[in-house]
Design a protein around this nucleic acid. Structure first.
Lengths: 338, 338
DNA sequence: TCGGGGCGTTGGAACGTTCCAACGCGCTAG
DNA sequence: CTAGCGCGTTGGAACGTTCCAACGCCCCGA
């Protein structure tokens, strides 16, 4: 027993067959005699043989791995999308390789590079801040599917998104139906998802003839960003009764800001988020939100990747999924005019 | 330009040098002349050359990768530990390869196998349900550090844990100090972390002479499990005024159960969690908890892995970190006896 | 003038696997 | 009785990289 790992050759020697036959047996080929198979598997077991994944992917020039770039792991929304991705990837006998960029473009570039160095056969990008150039460059080397933003296009890029503009409008319309008029918006910052939801907000306000009540402060999809932006809004216009916040995490922050400003939710102030993250259903005040089918988006993305892997000429898709209104504890009819 | 990727040989041909020199130049060796380096880097750039990680780790016999097994990604606690791990791993110029087992032992075995096939140089295991045999087997192939449970030992295994027994006791003692006596416990189920926190609870109750008020229901570290267990406790003994819940996620569930049982938190019922997960600080009712230094635990684990990689004979450590009481919105003095 | 040393450079071997063409054997059909 | 076939098996080449021993060259000192 030497210091380093046993190889296929060691197994072959021990079983008294050739390395080729060991290779076949290990992979479960049916063209190996029962006798040989048995001897080989026993030898492998006795030696503690473990196939070397690097040598494998070098020899067959494929890694059987899908790379996934996530914005970060703290927003549980990404975990939900990832569950959908993993389900499909595993069903295909592939593995996922997961990296996060923490919203830092330089770091996202490094992580993406590492994935491509690993010869991932497909790439799923789930990061609202993503630099389009990075995605386009990656798409020259393998199929790329971008989740949650549709504004990055190019050769080899498919997308899976929600109907963010419409969802933005619907959030407003539901508040209108509850009698709210002074509805303000905490945006998601400088990225397409945020911009779309904001656009939906603005359009719905205009359609309702409430242009003059349009009021927006920039958040950044984090809880603290949402809290700060909501605080600024409540200071700018104390008469606000409705708040459409760009995502659930920020909306949770907005709830805190509301209470700090002595507004009780939902009786004084209604708050709506986006995403439907599972943790927002917890706590004493469960969040009203525009739910996105997160796992389904993950599954759709993975399926598209495999479609493109198996037939590279298959058309690029631009999937869109539907968000739905989920009223919970943070919305109520507008208070009577004061 | 063939259909497949350019290799080091293509770069060499284009730059008019040998592949060996390209290899050196790409890795930034200083024994390459300025002239050659320039020609090589230009050629590589023009061809879109990308080093093949599989070939590299095969030739090197090292992957420069640390494997991390996470229980799952939905509990943000794991993301926090992971942040600490990544910080150290990146500082060493290594990469992390992340997998999750979702608490399924069979799946954890598969994922661990895949990591070992990839020749990870070290392994960090963060999963309370982990099968000890898996860890022990893995430890025969590379350094293993287990986070959050100290009961798995063996050759090649180090641990990084919190002082769970003491933390369990301290949670009780803080409630005692607030005047509570009927303090019940939602446990974390069949694993060591849960068992330790429960033990701490029991010991503190006994020390306080409150043996007869010891009351435990089993949760499973999830929000729904915590909710159900808390509901059972409140039904078994309506006079409970304090609830020590095995982790924050379950404690959030317990808050919901309390409200469903018409108990207001914290005036009727005080609730304490464990972990200090960041999302528990959100919402209208921020959770009182025994905080663990999660990122620090991640850093400690990664540092221990590298210590063992660089000097394999270095001693196995059993790090313990300190949990601290963090009073927030879910605890209050005990209500007067009814 | 020549020998030696350093420096930039080189080809070949190795890493552990998969693929491929080809082998020998026994069996069957002609 | 033999040609052909299928089956289980085999060695060698390939995958893209790193490492190593050795090369030629130039410069310096003797």
């Amino acid at each position: 027993m030497s210091t380093s790992r046993p190889t296929i050759n060691d197994v072959a020697a021990r079983a008294g067959v050739s390395k080729s036959l060991v290779s076949l047996a290990i992979r479960g080929s049916d063209r190996v005699s029962e006798e040989s198979r048995e001897a080989i598997l026993r030898a492998a077991d006795e030696l503690g043989y473990r196939p070397n994944a690097a040598a494998r992917s070098l020899a067959d020039r494929r890694s059987r791995t899908i790379g996934v770039l996530l914005h970060d792991l703290h927003n549980p929304v990404f975990a939900q999308v990832l569950d959908g991705v993993q389900e499909i990837v595993r069903a295909h006998g592939y593995r996922t390789m997961l990296v996060t960029g923490h919203g830092d473009s330089q770091r996202e570039r490094e992580e993406l590079t590492a994935l491509l160095d690993f010869q991932v056969e497909g790439l799923i990008l789930i990061s609202h801040g993503l630099d389009p150039a990075l995605a386009q460059q990656a798409a020259r080397e393998c199929p790329v599917v971008i989740v949650m933003r549709h504004d990055i296009t190019g050769r080899g890029i498919s997308t899976v998104c929600a109907d963010d503009v419409r969802a933005g409008s619907e959030a407003v319309e539901e508040l209108l139906a509850l009698g709210h008029e002074r509805i303000a918006h905490v945006s998601g910052g400088d990225n397409r998802v945020g911009a779309d939801r904001e656009l939906g907000y603005r359009e719905a306000m205009i359609r309702a003839g409430l242009d003059h009540h349009i009021l927006v402060e920039a958040g950044d999809f984090t809880e603290s960003g949402g809290r700060a932006a909501a605080a600024r809004l409540l200071e700018r216009d104390p008469d606000i009764t409705g708040l459409v916040v760009a995502n659930d995490l920020s909306a949770l922050g907005a709830v805190v800001a509301a209470e700090e400003a002595d507004r009780s939710v939902p009786s004084d102030l209604s708050i709506v988020g986006f995403d439907g993250m599972s943790l927002a259903a917890l706590g004493s005040l469960t969040l009203t939100t525009m739910v996105q089918p997160l796992e389904q988006m993950g599954r759709a993305a993975a399926e598209q990747v495999f479609r493109r892997i198996t037939s590279p000429r298959s058309p690029l898709s631009q999937d869109q999924v539907i968000s739905t209104w989920l009223p919970r504890g943070t919305t109520a009819p507008a208070p009577p005019r004061g």
